[in-house]
Nucleic acid binder design. Structure first.
Length: 558
DNA sequence: CTAGGGTTAG
C-alpha cells in the first residue's frame, strides 16, 4: 500500500507494462457482442429510415448527397413540416399539441404580441407539461416562448404554476431580456398566491445576470429579494449567489459579498469552499490559502472539496509537484481523494500527453476501492480517443454496463464526438439512437454539435435535415453557437445558399452571429459573384445591429 | 447553491 500518492512515480514498472499491454481493459468478447459498436453494416439501418419517415424513398443517407435541395428552413428548425407528408413517430403523449403550437409559433416571429394574436386560433388544451415543453423547445427565442406564455395565461381553466413562471424567467434571462424578466418576477409577486417567488426563481435571476457580466445587479437582486419578494436572504441564497459569481468569473464580487455579509449571515462549509474554488480558479493561490486558514479557525475544516479545488488548479498549471504536495497535505489532515479528485488528476495527465500515468491513476483509484462513476468514464473515454485509441474507448463505453454504472448524457456526448472524430459516422448515429432507449439520457445541444459539424464538412445535406428535425422532436433549441457552426461549416464546404438560409433564420430570431462569421459569409458570396444575396445579407446585419445595440450588450461568446 | 467535460479556429 502506497503511503503517499506520487503522481510521477505512481505507476510501478510492472504496472506500466500491463498498461502498455492494455491488460487493464476489458476482454474483447464484450466488444463483439455489442450492438452499438457492431461492425458497421453497409446497408442503410432501418432506424435511419425511421428518422426519414417523411421521405421513405430516400437513398443512402450517410453518403454524400450533393443534389438534395433544402426546403424551407423555418420548418426544419423549430417546426415539424420537414418536407411535408405524415408525422414522424410520436413518442411523448402531448406531442400532437406541441406540434400544433409549433406550427402557430413558426408563423409569426416578429413580436411577442403578434405571436399572442396568432395563437388565438390555436385550439389546444394548455397544461403545465405543455408549457414547460414549449419553453424548452423555444428557449432561444423569447418572443415566441413569451408570446405563448402570455396566451396560455389567458386560457380559461389554466393558471401558470411557479415552475412555469420560473422556466419563463429563465428563458428571458437566457435571451438577455432583463426588463421583461424583472417584469415577470414582479408579476409573480402580484397576481398569484404569495410565496410563488422562491429562492429557485431568484437563483435563476442571479445566475443569468452574472452570466451577462451584470455582477453588481446580481448582488443587488440578492440583497433586495427579502424586502421585495419575501425570499429569505439566508446562507443558502448567499451560497447560490456566490457560486454564480464565481462560475461566471468574478471572484472579486463573491469575495466582496462574503466580507460584507460575514457578520450578518453565518457562512457554512460550502460558502468557504465556493470562495476557495473561486480563488483557485483565478490562480490566486495565496488568497485561497488565506480563506482556508480562516476556515480552520471556524467550526469547519478543509475537506475533500477544499483540497480538490487546489488539486484542480495546480493540475491546470501543469504543476504536478504541487499537486502531490496537496494530496499529501490532504492525507495528513485525514481526507482521502475521491472519484472527483482522481478524475481531475487523470484528465489532466491525459491532456498533457502522459497517458500511461493517467491510466495509472485509474489503477490506483481501483486499488483504493474508489468506484468510478459516469463522469470518470467520460474522461477516460475522451483521453483514449484523443490518443488514437478509439477501440479502447469504445470498450470502456461498453464495459460501463457490466460495471453497473449507468451512462449519462456526457458519456454519450463524449462517445459520439469520439466516433465522429474517427470517422465512424454511422456508429455516431447509432449512439444517438441508442440514447433514446436509455433512462434520463435525452440528447442536448452538445450531443448534436459534432454531428452537425460532420454533416457540413462532408456535405451530407439530407442527414443535416434529419438531425435538425430530430433536435426539434427532442425539444433541443438551436442557439447562436449552433447557427454559427452551421453557417461557418456550410461556408467552408461551399454551400453558401444553405449558409444564407441559416443566417437569415438566426437573424430573424434575434441571434446575430459574430462579426467574423458575417464577414466569412459575405466574402464567400463575393467570391461566388452573388452580389444580390451579398447585399441582402449585409443590410440584414446592418438593421439588426441598429435595433439590438441600444438595449443589450454584445452576444455571449459561447 | 460547494470540487470533475467539451465546444471553436485555417
Amino acid at each position: 500500500m502506497l503511503s503517499k500518492l506520487r503522481i510521477g512515480k505512481l505507476v510501478s514498472c510492472s504496472l506500466r507494462r500491463r498498461i502498455c499491454e492494455r491488460r487493464f481493459l476489458v476482454t474483447s468478447n464484450a466488444f463483439s457482442e455489442s450492438t452499438v459498436v457492431a461492425a458497421e453494416s453497409p446497408e442503410l439501418p432501418s432506424w435511419i429510415k425511421d428518422f426519414l419517415s417523411n421521405k421513405p424513398s430516400s437513398s443512402n443517407l450517410v453518403t454524400d448527397d450533393e443534389d438534395f435541395v433544402i426546403p424551407s428552413l423555418a420548418g426544419w428548425v423549430e417546426g415539424q413540416k420537414f418536407s411535408g407528408g405524415e408525422e414522424v413517430n410520436v413518442t411523448k403523449k402531448p406531442m400532437e399539441d406541441i406540434d400544433k403550437v409549433c406550427e402557430f409559433l413558426n408563423k409569426k416571429d416578429a413580436s411577442h404580441w403578434e405571436v399572442v394574436k396568432e395563437l388565438s386560433g390555436c385550439d389546444v388544451e394548455v397544461s403545465e407539461s405543455l408549457v414547460l415543453q414549449v419553453l424548452r423547445r423555444f428557449s432561444n427565442g423569447w418572443n415566441q416562448s413569451y408570446g405563448f406564455f402570455i396566451w396560455a395565461k389567458s386560457q380559461t381553466g389554466y393558471v401558470h404554476s411557479g415552475k412555469s413562471y420560473n422556466a419563463m424567467v429563465d428563458v428571458l434571462g437566457k435571451c438577455r431580456n432583463f426588463d421583461l424578466m424583472w417584469e415577470l418576477v414582479n408579476e409573480m409577486m402580484k397576481c398569484q398566491e404569495c410565496g410563488i417567488v422562491t429562492l429557485d426563481t431568484m437563483s435563476k435571476v442571479m445566475r443569468r445576470l452574472a452570466k451577462s457580466g451584470k455582477y453588481s445587479e446580481a448582488v443587488d437582486a440578492f440583497l433586495e429579494m427579502e424586502k421585495s419578494y419575501g425570499v429569505k436572504t439566508d446562507v443558502n441564497g448567499m451560497n447560490s449567489l456566490m457560486d454564480a459569481l464565481v462560475k461566471e468569473n468574478s471572484i472579486e464580487h463573491a469575495h466582496e459579498v462574503f466580507l460584507k455579509l460575514f457578520d450578518i449571515i453565518k457562512p457554512d462549509s460550502r460558502t468557504f469552499n465556493i470562495l476557495i474554488h473561486g480563488f483557485c480558479k483565478a490562480r490566486k493561490f495565496d488568497d485561497a490559502r488565506t480563506i482556508m486558514d480562516l476556515m480552520k479557525v471556524t467550526e469547519f475544516s478543509p475537506d475533500v472539496v477544499t483540497y480538490t479545488s487546489f488539486v484542480e488548479a495546480y493540475c491546470r498549471e501543469g504543476d504536478f509537484r504541487r499537486v502531490n504536495e496537496i494530496l499529501e497535505e490532504m492525507r495528513e489532515n485525514g481526507s482521502k481523494p475521491n472519484v472527483v479528485t482522481y478524475t481531475i488528476v487523470m484528465h489532466s495527465l491525459g491532456k498533457s500527453r502522459q497517458v500511461a500515468e493517467a491510466l495509472g491513476v485509474y489503477e490506483k483509484m481501483k486499488e483504493d476501492g474508489c468506484v468510478p462513476d459516469a463522469k470518470f468514464y467520460s474522461s477516460l473515454i475522451h483521453i483514449l480517443s484523443k490518443t488514437g485509441r478509439f477501440k479502447d474507448a469504445a470498450e470502456i463505453f461498453e464495459d460501463m454496463t457490466k460495471q453497473r454504472v449507468p451512462r449519462d448524457v456526457l458519456v454519450y456526448n463524449t462517445m459520439i464526438s469520439a466516433a465522429v472524430h474517427h470517422s465512424r459516422d454511422e456508429m455516431a448515429l447509432r449512439l444517438l439512437k441508442k440514447m433514446e432507449e436509455e433512462e434520463s439520457c435525452s440528447p442536448n445541444i452538445e450531443t448534436y454539435a459534432p454531428l452537425l459539424k460532420m454533416c457540413c464538412q462532408k456535405k451530407k445535406m439530407k442527414l443535416l435535415g434529419v438531425l435538425l428535425h430530430h433536435m426539434v422532436k427532442n425539444d433541443v433549441s438551436i442557439d447562436v453557437a449552433t447557427y454559427i457552426l452551421l453557417i461557418r461549416g456550410l461556408c467552408m464546404s461551399g454551400k453558401v445558399e444553405e449558409a444564407c438560409l441559416f443566417f437569415e433564420e438566426a437573424v430573424r430570431k434575434g441571434m446575430v452571429p459574430r462579426d467574423s462569421t458575417c464577414k466569412m459569409l459575405v466574402e464567400e458570396l463575393e467570391k461566388k459573384g452573388m452580389a444580390e444575396t451579398k447585399f441582402k445579407i449585409q443590410s440584414l446585419v446592418q438593421s439588426k445591429v441598429m435595433t439590438t445595440k441600444s438595449e443589450s450588450p454584445p452576444l455571449p461568446v459561447t
